[in-house]
């Protein structure tokens, strides 16, 4: 006798009448057969669940009037994954096209501290980048800067920061380089820094700074602080044009500022904190008699009072 429990789907086939006469005879003699018959007969006595179509259709029409389809959930690719993928792509492409070149970039409203292979420290301000050759860096300490960064250079051979507005060479020191658009500004906080621009050369000692614009070449001035204030989250200005203040605000808070009818050539001396945009706008524009309004979350319009 074939054991129907082990036989592949015997009971199911029996129900569908798909077993042989012989199998059937054997099964009908077994004790289980009666039990299964009882079960099946019992099930026969259940009613199908009832459904009042007419009544339910009336309810359905009422329900349809107020029914609002739930928004289908779209499981989105997480934004940070996009960011990670983008960064990875950039790194890979840089590796492929420019072997050994290491690039570090900061976005708007972001600063980053990093250590160079020779243990020098760099603090990158917002929207800046440095690139250097990691493998040969120890032999030739040279890097390219776009934007603004603060360097704490470890003692050693000549350390050169190249910018499009001029080169800065040092031996072991702390200094801040600002190189955006046409403007170059270097503050020396320790040691000696040599700034060269075209044919001009200046050597800065501790507490000295230099700035240059297309109009004025390499203007020396004194500084009091121990390190650049932006490293501590404050940006200071001393007799700079308002348009520079505006672009620094834009960089620090990742906003767009429309100058409106104000005179962006006016000189400004002061500072702002990177913590709070409202406070920063107030400290910069209130004393200048300028009104600022948010046209949306990240656009600000300026007007003379």
């Amino acid at each position: 006798m074939s054991d129907y429990k082990k036989d592949n789907n015997f009971l199911a086939r029996w129900l569908a009448g798909e077993i042989t006469e012989e199998e059937k005879k054997v099964f009908e003699k077994s004790k289980d057969y009666l039990a299964y018959k009882d079960i099946l007969n019992g099930v026969e006595r259940f009613d199908q669940p009832t459904f009042d179509t007419i009544q339910n259709l009336i309810k359905q029409k009422e329900y349809n009037k107020t029914y609002q389809e739930k928004k289908t959930k779209v499981i989105s690719f997480k934004p940070w994954l996009y960011a990670a993928a983008a960064i990875l792509l950039v790194i890979v492409s840089i590796r492929v096209f420019n072997p050994n070149q290491t690039v570090v970039t900061t976005e708007m409203a972001q600063t980053q501290t990093l250590k160079l292979p020779d243990n020098s420290e760099v603090v990158l301000n917002a929207e800046s980048s440095i690139s250097y050759e990691a493998e040969s860096f120890l032999e030739k300490r040279e890097l390219t800067l776009k934007g603004q960064a603060y360097f704490k250079v470890a003692k050693g051979s000549k350390f050169v920061v190249k910018t499009k507005n001029g080169d800065i060479a040092v031996l072991g020191t702390q200094f801040d380089v600002f190189s955006r658009t046409q403007k170059l500004e270097v503050h020396c906080f320790e040691g000696k820094v040599q700034v060269s621009q075209q044919k001009e050369q200046v050597i800065l000692t501790r507490g000295k700074a230099v700035k240059s614009t297309p109009a004025q070449k390499l203007l020396l001035f004194d500084i009091q602080n121990q390190n650049p204030s932006w490293v501590n989250g404050i940006t200071h200005f001393k007799e700079v044009q308002l348009k520079e203040v505006i672009s620094e605000l834009e960089r620090q808070f990742d906003v767009k500022i429309k100058p409106g009818n104000i005179d962006s050539q006016r000189m400004f001396t002061g500072f702002f904190d990177h913590q709070d945009i409202k406070k920063a706008l107030q400290t910069c524009f209130e004393p200048m008699n300028i009104n600022y309004t948010f046209t949306n979350d990240n656009t600000i319009e300026l007007r003379n009072k």
């Binding site: 015997f10 009971l11 004790k31 009882d38 079960i39």
Partner: peptide, 22 residues
């Protein structure tokens, strides 16, 4: 269809287990 048969078979065996002989 095979999967239907399999489920049917299991359903019957399970029902049989929970209904003792009368």
């Amino acid at each position: 269809v095979k999967a239907v048969e399999k489920r049917m078979q299991l359903a019957l065996l399970n029902l049989r287990k929970s209904i003792p002989n009368i």
